[in-house]
Design a protein around this nucleic acid. Structure first.
Lengths: 201, 201, 201, 201
DNA sequence: GATGAATGAGTCTTCATTCAT
DNA sequence: GATGAATGAAGACTCATTCAT
């Protein structure tokens, strides 16, 4: 599943990108089982032979695609977290949520499909690692701002945000601002901590 | 994808059940693409011919399995909701969360795999319907107890609970009580409504 | 391919007929490969088990159907030939042609399909025999009326008539009288014997 | 049923030809239901995968074979008809009959089987077109030579000739000259027109 | 006798991957 | 390096036939 050879020339790198993006496009308007190597090669404008020059298996292509997306999300998150160090808690939280929303609602069908592909491929490790990174940044934020039980809280906040974003994606929502408003409400509500049964008026 | 033949004899009904459960078992310890008709038949202890007596396509089997699980969750939810009418808001909410947790953490790998299968099969309609049912019951509960904006709130609460349950499942958690405690915290926190940025001081 | 048991009771005979006719009906509005034993049983209103009580193989059913049709044509021809003994040559010829036309244009799709089935099943012997019978009757007629080379002539007349009837069937013609007029023209023209190249005006 | 991929290399063209010819060979010494893709591939000395590179379905192979034969007959007929313009009526007629006889008695079993295959596949249109071409050429000939009712006459002449040729094929005749003599007799006899019942005296 | 559930050999077809040119 | 022809294992599905009830 490792790339077969490192593309040394720019042309080769372009070919690799074309192949990965072709897989993304097919996933985007079909399902995982419509992604076959011949289709990828055709869409990438490359012969099947060339495709196998750069990837030794079909899974390798999907893995590359997943890594590409992981990397992007990772960068967005890191960037938001860096910035957050100089911001208020509210601003920092919003920035992190915004990074997640932006990433997932961009090419929603692709990310939906990849979520499953991730589970099927032996990439659990990488997925876990990414999740750990995200949770880690949230923990960091929580620690800075004195939130109790930062680890458990961070884990749950990430999970509930993910659930809401996924549901929004499934429902075809496109209004980032509205989604982010509700996310904020959920997150800050959760942070309020254990609630007395009487809250409900 | 429709069942091909109604089993008229008890023997036939047993065959149908065996086939559906065999598909579940395979999904449980493999992935969707390991579910093939030969494997299902073998695992069900049935000939491939018998399988096709009752299901016209492979998808039909998965659809039957999904419907079986839907039905179960539906019943759990309805039951919890009925009971909730005579309970306090807190108790009623706990009952609904409990129904969801119990269903999803029972056979976690199966439900993980089915979630994707659902997306791939043309069962969106049924999935939507089930989701609508669940959200509907939550709305009902919220209305009774005077929660503001019951519809949007219900949708978001269901989504965030789903996100947390899925994450727990992925993480291999098995402690229902702990998960439920955190769910309650998240839900009641969310219900507190918009929070001033200063809480987290 | 022999009937498995002789139906001793009227009810049984009716079942056998129903099965054979069901096969005919399916052939009539489908092709040979749509004729399968389950479809036949269903259409005959009989269980697959019962079907196999009367026919040991699928081919047996088709063979019975072919024999039924052969028998009918055979009887029509014999009857016409008998009558022809007391008629003029022209009348006798018309009667024979009429018998053939009536048989083939009745249920044309069925007879089209059976023609091929005959070739596939090992029924060449019976088909040959029927053809020999028909040619034989024509030879008889020709001998009585002093036609030269009665055998070769009969064979060719039967063949050309068959060709014209088949073409009419394929073209979907239904006007028996017109077809018969042209057949007569062809047959009597042929009987005129070797032609000088100058005939054509 | 359309060819899937145009062979671009000579090697590929050879593969396509081998597949079509393999189907012909199997039909020639078996029946239509012995023509299965595995058998074709094996006989063609080609893998099943290669077969499906060029034909999207089994029917596509048969269609290609039928078209190949149609094309050949079409060319023979056109050639004969062209030549006939400078010939006497008798010569021209003989040439057309010769073309038909040569085509059908060459590989008789193959042409027998294809006739049925044609009826089963959705190639009626092409078959009709070929028939129309043939009848058209005969009409042309008849018009030039002043035959009455050229259309009806041509249609019937083609049909009766087909009938005689088919019968000869079925009977296993191989003497082209003798068959052609009888065909000529039949055709010119038919052209003599309506006959008085007294000829046969 | 009848029923219909069960069987499994046999077919079609796809698609990841290899390799000759 | 690139191309695309070729491969064949694998999987979906059919249907003639058997047999327990």
């Amino acid at each position: 599943m490792k790339p077969r050879k490192q593309p040394r020339q720019a042309r080769a790198a372009a070919t690799v990108d074309a192949i990965v993006e072709a897989a993304a496009r097919i996933l985007e308007r079909g399902s995982l089982d419509q992604v076959n190597t011949n289709a990828i090669a055709k869409r990438a404008g490359v012969s099947i032979g060339s495709l196998y020059q750069y990837f030794s298996t079909k899974e390798g292509i999907l893995a590359a695609l997943i890594r590409r997306e992981h990397m992007q999300l990772r960068e967005n998150i890191i960037e938001a977290a860096e910035a957050g160090r100089d911001q208020s808690f509210e601003e920092a939280t919003e920035a992190l949520l915004g990074a997640a929303v932006a990433h997932k609602l961009d090419r929603p069908r692709l990310h939906r499909a990849l979520e499953y592909a991730e589970a099927v491929l032996p990439l659990d490790a990488e997925a876990h690692e990414l999740n750990a990174l995200i949770v880690g940044r949230v923990v960091e934020l929580f620690v800075i701002h004195g939130i109790d039980e930062p680890k458990e809280t961070a884990r749950d906040v990430v999970a509930l945000a993910k659930g809401m974003i996924d549901a929004a994606r499934t429902a075809g929502e496109t209004d980032h601002a509205d989604l982010q408003r509700r996310l904020k409400r959920a997150v800050f509500g959760y942070l309020r901590g254990p609630v007395s049964p009487t809250i409900a008026r």
